[in-house]
């Protein structure tokens, strides 16, 4: 479904992503792990068009995404959340989701009639991410975990085929982390979305993913089922920190 072939990105001499290839199949819950600075976020930014790859390509449904601007990538069926919270901080939760729906319906150029609020759809999305009680709260005043939930709603509004979540639980309390893992797995199952995510929390990754890719110094050193990755000797060596012999 989502196919990444030989992606490379160099920042003034430093290779952040090094000839990375991986395949995400339909219905997969695919985790990308790797130590800090392994190139996870850069990889995501390359997939979504926020950065331009030096070489390699990304295909979705066998159509090339490489070279498209971010807004065009979204239109092809990709949704994402950002590692640093990225919502519209001075608008209410309701208005945030409203914008996402305007964008999804490609109504953003419509200037000749007042905005009609799609109450039902907004309510349903807010319910999905359990923000129905905060609809009228200004987004910037929500707690960190709640803002992450809102981000999820924004990403889901576009009805993506593939959802990219960049560290969905980063900065959350253990309690929030647990809640959001439940939320994400439920959404993925209910909506039949394919999920590609990066994560620090090993328990979470091995708990929910059915496929795991390991990045080290920008290169893919393993891409397999959780069990196979756990047993993989080079993964243990460079990542899990246990020397093998």
């Amino acid at each position: 479904m989502l196919e990444i072939k030989g992606l490379t990105k160099t920042f003034s001499g430093f290779t952040a992503v090094d000839n990375a290839s991986l395949i995400v199949k339909k219905g997969d819950i695919h985790g990308v792990i790797g130590p800090n600075g392994a190139g996870k976020s850069t990889l995501f930014n390359l997939i979504t068009g926020h950065l331009i790859a030096d070489t390699g390509e990304v295909r979705l449904h066998d159509k090339r995404l490489t070279g498209l601007a971010p807004h065009a990538v979204v239109r092809r069926g990709l949704g994402r959340s950002f590692q640093r919270i990225s919502v519209f901080p001075r608008m209410t939760v309701w208005e945030n989701v409203q914008i996402a729906l305007v964008a999804k319906d490609q109504q953003e150029f419509c200037f000749w009639k007042p905005l009609v609020s799609q109450n039902e759809q907004i309510a349903r999305l807010l319910e999905t991410v359990r923000l129905e009680d905060e609809a009228q709260v200004v987004a910037g005043e929500l707690s960190y975990g709640r803002q992450k939930q809102l981000e999820l709603a924004l990403a889901l509004a576009g009805e993506p085929h593939v959802l990219l979540l960049d560290e969905p639980t980063a900065g959350m309390s253990p309690r929030e982390t647990e809640d959001s893992i439940l939320l994400i797995t439920r959404i993925v199952k209910d909506r039949g979305v394919t999920l590609l995510f990066t994560e620090h929390d090993m328990n979470m990754v091995f708990g929910i993913a059915n496929r795991i890719t390991v990045l080290h110094h920008g290169a893919v050193i393993a891409s397999d089922s959780p069990d196979a990755v756990r047993e993989n000797s080079s993964v243990q060596e460079v990542y899990l920190g246990r020397p093998t012999h």
């Binding site: 979504t48 971010p70 919502v87 519209f88 419509c110 200037f111 905005l115």
Partner: peptide, 28 residues
């Protein structure tokens, strides 16, 4: 009408967070 249209609302969203608006599929 322009100010209260989908375009008007989208403009405000772009002002707030251009990157996010772009990744909702808006050609900002």
């Amino acid at each position: 009408i322009v100010a209260h249209s989908p375009l008007g609302r989208t403009l405000m969203a772009i002002r707030e967070n251009q990157v996010r608006a772009g990744f909702l599929g808006v050609h900002t």
